[in-house]
């Protein structure tokens, strides 16, 4: 009987330890602790070029993350990239004329959406679209433009 009891206790301890490990993985290792999943409102923006923006990339304002990119799809009529962002519910004072940029974190870092607030008194709501956007900077294009302008200067 004592043996049975000790087996029960050890199995219980084992299961508790494993659940603690799972909790640790959920809260400390993965993003479950940081972002309440599927919470917030949706805002879309159209970009001429989404660069290498990925789903789940951060959406930040003044360098603080206020949401995540939820979906990126191609609009076959206008040939634009439609980026759907999910903004946290607490951030409900984004002006309608907010400027959406695709920035790169560092030279080789991943791309994210940066929002620069406009001056409008009206705030965006669920399902609204940000009309003022700037596409991702493509490094190759910039280098090409730089070389081109340098060549022009040299020609004069």
């Amino acid at each position: 009987m004592a043996k049975q009891r000790s087996i029960e206790v050890l199995v219980g301890a084992f299961m508790a330890a494993a659940l603690v490990a799972l909790f640790f993985l959920a809260m400390k290792v993965s993003n479950l602790g940081t972002s309440p999943a599927a919470d917030g409102y949706r805002v879309t923006a159209r970009f001429a070029n989404a660069g290498s923006l990925k789903v789940r990339a951060p959406v930040s304002m003044a360098g603080v993350r206020v949401g995540r990119v939820e979906a990126i799809r191609f609009d076959k009529k206008t040939y634009e990239a439609v980026v759907t962002m999910r903004i946290e519910n607490g951030v409900d004072t984004i002006p309608e004329d907010t400027f959406a940029n695709i920035f790169t974190a560092g030279l080789l870092g991943e791309q994210y959406v940066g929002l620069e607030p406009g001056g409008s008194e009206d705030f965006v709501r669920d399902g609204d679209e940000l009309t003022q956007t700037q596409s991702a900077l493509i490094l190759e294009q910039m280098i090409g433009q730089f070389l081109f302008s340098k060549a022009e200067e040299g020609g004069k």
Binding site: L22, L25, A26, K28, V29, S30, N31, L32, G33, T34, A37, R56, P58
Partner: peptide, 15 residues
């Protein structure tokens, strides 16, 4: 170490 981990590892997808 922890913040990069949390931003890249997804609970549903990975764990």
């Amino acid at each position: 170490f922890w913040s990069q981990m949390q931003s890249k590892v997804d609970f549903r997808e990975d764990v």
